[in-house]
Simulated scan of single mutants.
Amino acid sequence: MNIKLTGIFLASFILLFNALYAQNNKQPIRQTTTGTSIARGKVVYTNVCLPCHMADAGGVQNMNPPLIKTTYVLGNKTTLIKIVLRGFNEDVEINGQTYSNTMGAHDDLTDRQIADVLTYVRHSFGNKASTIKATEVAKVRAIYKK
């Protein structure tokens, strides 16, 4: 068998394998990278978070806190995930300003959506923090189920 026919055979086999795998598992093989998580997170941020925290993540004075270089955003992942899942109903002081608007729970978002949006926020607006994985969100969700 020549090289050209071998390549065609191999390519056909790979396409068939992927089609069968996707059919049997209802989803294609997909690897999530930080870049794809950030891109998906930006969509969630735009649709869910932007109205309160603004396009620049600067928040609204005395109402909705900024998401820029705050201990809430850059700090403990579990605390941040819990805030998104359960909401936040406390006055919070950030950089000398008090913010008092209640944040509703966003437990309607999937673990993946929460991980993506938090990864987006932790990697945007001048923030530099580690990513958040859907498995981390799932663990927190299980702990704090209502």
Rank of each mutant, 00 (worst) to 15 (best):
M1A: 09
N2S: 12
I3L: 15
I3R: 15
I3Q: 14
I3G: 03
L5I: 11
T6M: 14
I8D: 01
F9R: 07
F9E: 00
L10H: 01
A11E: 00
S12R: 05
F13G: 06
F13R: 01
L16Q: 06
A19Y: 15
A19H: 09
Y21H: 11
A22D: 08
N24Y: 04
Q27L: 12
Q27T: 13
P28D: 05
P28Q: 08
R30L: 13
Q31W: 09
T32N: 10
T33R: 03
T33P: 04
T36M: 11
S37D: 08
R40Y: 02
G41T: 08
K42N: 08
V43E: 13
V44T: 14
V44Q: 00
Y45S: 04
T46K: 13
T46P: 00
T46H: 06
V48G: 01
V48C: 00
V48P: 03
V48L: 05
C49Q: 07
C49M: 09
L50H: 05
P51R: 09
P51E: 06
C52P: 05
M54Y: 04
M54D: 04
M54H: 08
A55I: 11
Q61N: 10
Q61W: 01
Q61L: 14
N62H: 12
N64W: 14
P65I: 01
P65D: 07
P66W: 01
L67P: 05
K69V: 08
K69F: 02
T70R: 03
T71N: 13
Y72I: 11
Y72F: 12
V73S: 07
V73D: 03
L74P: 02
L74A: 09
T78C: 00
T78L: 00
T79S: 08
L80T: 09
I81Q: 03
I83A: 10
V84Y: 07
L85W: 03
R86Y: 06
R86T: 09
R86Q: 11
G87P: 03
F88W: 14
F88L: 02
E90V: 12
D91G: 09
D91W: 08
V92M: 09
V92W: 11
E93N: 13
I94F: 14
N95M: 14
Q97A: 10
T98H: 11
T98C: 00
Y99L: 03
T102Y: 09
G104V: 13
G104L: 12
H106S: 12
L109C: 08
L109N: 07
T110S: 15
D111Y: 01
R112M: 09
R112I: 14
I114A: 06
V117T: 08
V117Q: 02
L118N: 10
Y120L: 03
V121Q: 05
V121H: 07
R122K: 08
R122P: 06
H123M: 04
S124G: 09
F125Y: 15
F125P: 07
G126R: 03
N127K: 02
K128C: 02
S130L: 03
I132W: 00
T135G: 12
V137Y: 02
A138P: 00
K139H: 02
V140A: 06
I143D: 10
Y144W: 12
Y144P: 02
Y144M: 11
